[in-house]
Simulated scan of single mutants.
Amino acid sequence: MFKKSFKLLVAGTLSLAMLLTGCSTGGTAVQATDAPKTEEKSDNNQTTANADIKAGFIYSAPVADGGFVQSHDKGRLYLEEQLGVQTVYKESVPETQEVEKVARDMIDQGCNVIFAVSFGYMDYIEKLSKEFPEVTFFHCSGYKTTENMANYFGRVEDARYITGMVAGLQTETNQIGYVAAMPIPEVIRGINAFTLGVKAVNPDAVVKVSWTNTWYDPAKEKEAGSALIDQGCDVLAQHQNAAGAQQAAEEKGVWSIGYHQDMSGIAPNANLVSAIWNWGPYYVEAVQSVIDGTFTPSAYWEGIDAGIVDISPLTANAKEGIAEIIEARRAEMKAGTFNTFQGPIKDQAGNERVPEGSVLSDEDQLSNDWFVEGVVGDIN
């Protein structure tokens, strides 16, 4: 289990993102997963405390989405395995007041820990946390906290940068496509980090952005990817819940960069590498803090050095020599000697945003509303 340090994020910097609507509709009945049988622990008090915990997970897309939600659900299963607690989940819950009903249902079923796993759930979960002070809430990707509500995410931009290096070294056309969900700071800074990685190894390459304005719509994601390929892109990256862009690359014979989890199995002839999440250890530590009575309403935002984000193994589709180049940069990130957003950095118009010797502040990252030099596309 990696060690974590909880850091206070800058609050109130994502006002643009609060305008988002739901990522998907529909859903299924709450699914329950009984805790697996474990060896008897010598600490009977700890065993009793674990049995008193029931954690509910609320997801914005199907568990089998092949990306974002599936990566979290692997973390949920890891939590069960490691702590022996019971969990339930509800998939495909829209980012509307529906999330309140789902959370209330879970609380009625005995859940005393709730993980709300989508940005648009934030305000609803904040409201519920004040109504149910006896329940501990964790919200993914937002910035608000209350006395019994924490938030959590990771600096996936570290992994984005490295996968951008892979794309920059692999491309032959110097045109790289990026299928993007919503024009919020989280997605924008991911595009920027990826592009900085591309430009670090290939100054002639550009990254073309296509917005889908949905977190989960495999058909629309695939269509956007195909359109970028038709424009000359020979590598596709993505910030989407599912793997539609990977499928487009596989079918049209170009390369792809996955996200959330290793997508090489979905596009075996196209995928080069994926930026991946490792949520399990975080979920274990979060629930353990509730069991131990050490929970604090803080904000978690760590990077590749903490292990919550990383890259998947480079596939055999990648050119020879890429592995050595990216591993050197990855090692610098893990050692804390390289920052993804260190200067000099210019924006699309050529204006210097981060001078040499400086680093883009956390506050500016969390409110990022501009593209770096090398991105082709608008924020709309």
Score class of each variant (00 low, 15 high):
Met1Tyr: 05
Lys4Glu: 12
Lys7Ile: 15
Gly12Val: 07
Gly12Lys: 01
Thr13Trp: 00
Thr13Ile: 03
Thr13Leu: 13
Leu14Lys: 10
Ser15Pro: 00
Met18Cys: 03
Leu19Asn: 13
Leu20Val: 13
Thr28His: 08
Thr33Lys: 07
Asp34Met: 11
Lys37Leu: 14
Thr38Gln: 15
Asp43Ser: 09
Asn44Gly: 01
Thr47Arg: 10
Phe57Ala: 08
Ile58Arg: 01
Ile58Phe: 01
Tyr59Arg: 02
Ser60Thr: 06
Pro62Ala: 13
Pro62Glu: 11
Val63Asp: 06
Asp65Cys: 07
Val69Asp: 04
Ser71Pro: 01
Lys74Ala: 15
Gly75Thr: 06
Leu77Ala: 14
Tyr78Val: 11
Leu79Ala: 11
Gln86Arg: 14
Thr87Trp: 02
Lys90Pro: 00
Pro94Glu: 10
Gln97Ile: 14
Ala103Trp: 00
Met106Gly: 05
Cys111Val: 11
Asn112Thr: 06
Phe115Asn: 05
Phe115Val: 06
Tyr121Asn: 04
Tyr121Lys: 05
Tyr121Phe: 15
Met122Leu: 08
Tyr124Asp: 14
Tyr124Phe: 15
Ile125Asp: 07
Lys127Val: 13
Lys127Ser: 12
Ser129Gly: 08
Ser129Gln: 04
Glu134Gln: 14
Thr136Asn: 07
Tyr143Ser: 11
Lys144Pro: 00
Glu147Arg: 06
Glu147Tyr: 01
Met149Ile: 07
Asn151Ser: 14
Tyr152Glu: 06
Tyr152Val: 11
Gly154Met: 13
Ala159Phe: 02
Ala159Lys: 01
Ile162Phe: 03
Val166Gly: 07
Val166Leu: 03
Ala167Met: 03
Gln170Leu: 06
Glu172Val: 10
Asn174Gly: 02
Ile176Asn: 04
Ala180Ser: 14
Pro185Ile: 10
Glu186Cys: 01
Val187Phe: 01
Val187Met: 03
Ile188Tyr: 02
Arg189Trp: 03
Ile191Asn: 02
Gly197Met: 08
Lys199Asp: 08
Ala200Tyr: 01
Val209Lys: 04
Tyr216Gly: 04
Ala219Ser: 13
Glu223Trp: 00
Gly225Lys: 06
Ser226Met: 10
Ser226Asp: 12
Cys233Leu: 10
His239Ser: 11
Ala243Lys: 01
Ser256Leu: 09
Ile257Trp: 02
Met263Gly: 12
Gly265Val: 08
Asn269Cys: 03
Asn269Lys: 14
Asn271Met: 07
Asn271Gln: 11
Trp277His: 12
Pro281Ile: 08
Tyr282Leu: 15
Glu285Pro: 00
Val287His: 04
Val287Trp: 02
Ser289Lys: 03
Ser289Asn: 10
Val290Met: 09
Asp292Leu: 08
Pro297Val: 08
Ser298Cys: 05
Ser298Gln: 13
Gly307Trp: 03
Ser312Pro: 01
Leu314Gly: 05
Ala316Arg: 04
Asn317Asp: 10
Lys319Cys: 06
Gly321Phe: 03
Ala323Val: 06
Ile325Arg: 11
Ile326Thr: 09
Ile326Tyr: 00
Ile326Arg: 02
Ala328Gly: 05
Arg329Thr: 15
Met333Cys: 05
Lys334Thr: 11
Phe338Asn: 04
Phe338Arg: 12
Gln342His: 01
Gln342Tyr: 00
Ile345Asp: 07
Ile345Asn: 05
Gly350Leu: 09
Gly350Asp: 10
Asn351Ala: 14
Ser358Leu: 08
Val359Met: 06
Ser361Thr: 15
Ser361Phe: 01
Asp362Ile: 13
Gln365Thr: 06
Ser367Trp: 02
Asp369Ile: 07
Trp370Gly: 06
Phe371Asn: 13
Gly377Ala: 10
Gly377Gln: 05
Asn380Met: 10
